[in-house]
């Protein structure tokens, strides 16, 4: 019995077995209790929601791996959504220059976060909250708190439930998500840069002694996280319309997706495929909750408890008496 448990533990360490089991169980539960759960449009909208969530949680996954937290995600999402809506919808820019501006602004702000954290050795949670608040404020200052524009049609089609990709009946966002997930797996496990990222998270001091330039890792991770958030903001502007409140749910759910997926904080365990599973689990769970009449407030409560339960299984501190 104990041997079987040990084997299961070893397997769980390398493969997200529990997560896959939870996803299947939730899906079967939804299928059995909610009418229309497995119909085409329902599956499609679940996939769209999961892809938006998983893309928003991509940067946070990398931040987790290097032992940091990015609280600037909502600010960057709102900034991205605001810029695309205003530049294209009000100022009449075409899509590409507007995207270039968004990429430049978010990347620069994210890089600044990473640089400050590493240069001054300060907690990322504080710096990213500050930079995120600046991004959020900058968006409202620029529009004078009156957001009227809307993004171009092309952006709306990427995440629209009725669009198709090269004749396949799923919107492009799902294929973009799939491509990014595969690229992320290759990057994290098969490239020197990915190795450096894990090494920095496992032990920053040892990484420095191994001649890893940890500042570059920090700057890169935060720049990438802010960039992804900005892009998710653009997609969300097309999916749901820009609004100063669209960012917050993606911080909370994104964090939950990362943790439920099984990526440990500063533990250098886990990768983006875990987060993808976490996002799928959360989306199915949210769909079930909504189907049973629970609102977003209930979801916050459920997610809070969910993280506590999952973190109980791993990622806890050592006993004090073992450290003496």
């Amino acid at each position: 019995m104990s041997q079987a448990l040990a084997t299961a533990g070893r397997l769980q360490r390398n493969w997200p077995l529990l997560q896959i089991f939870a996803l299947v169980a939730l899906f079967v539960f939804g299928m059995a209790t909610i009418e229309g759960f497995t119909q085409g449009y329902s599956i499609r909208s679940m996939l769209i929601l999961a892809s938006l969530l998983a893309l928003a949680a991509l940067g946070q996954t990398l931040c987790f791996l290097i032992g940091s937290l990015d609280l600037s995600i909502p600010g960057m999402i709102v900034l991205g959504a605001t810029l695309i809506s205003e530049l294209c919808g009000v100022h009449g820019w075409s899509l590409l220059p507007a995207l270039a501006v968004i990429v430049a602004v978010t990347t620069a702000m994210g890089a600044f976060t990473g640089w400050v954290c590493d240069r001054f050795e300060v907690p990322s949670i504080v710096v990213s909250l500050g930079v995120g608040t600046i991004a959020l404020g900058a968006g409202t200052v620029w529009t004078g708190a009156r957001l009227v524009g809307s993004p171009p049609e092309l952006i709306r089609e990427i995440s629209s439930g009725t669009s198709t990709t090269f004749g396949i009946g799923l919107p492009p966002i799902i294929f973009i998500w799939l491509a990014i997930a595969i690229a992320m797996a290759v990057f994290l496990h098969r490239t020197p840069a990915g190795r450096r990222l894990y090494a920095t998270g496992a032990n920053p001091r040892a990484a420095k002694l191994a001649l890893i330039r940890t500042r570059r890792v920090w700057v890169g991770v935060f720049a990438f996280s802010a960039l992804m958030s900005g892009i998710v903001g653009v997609l969300l502007a097309g999916f749901a319309g820009a609004d100063p409140g669209i960012g917050n749910p993606y911080l909370f759910q994104g964090l939950t997706a990362v943790i439920v997926g099984g990526t440990a904080w500063a533990g250098s365990r886990g990768d983006y495929s875990h987060t993808v599973l976490g996002a799928l689990i959360l989306t199915v769970l949210t769909t079930i909750l909504v189907g049973r009449g629970y609102d977003t407030a209930d979801q916050h409560i459920v997610f809070g408890f969910l993280i506590l339960i999952v973190v109980a299984a791993y990622g806890r501190d050592r006993r004090l008496r073992d450290r003496v």
Binding site: V116, V126, V127, L129, G130, V131, G132, T133, I134, A135, L136, G137, A138, T140, V141
Partner: peptide, 10 residues
């Protein structure tokens, strides 16, 4: 105010 608070925090 948000911009100012963010700057103060950093």
């Amino acid at each position: 105010i948000n911009v100012v608070y963010g700057v103060m925090l950093v």
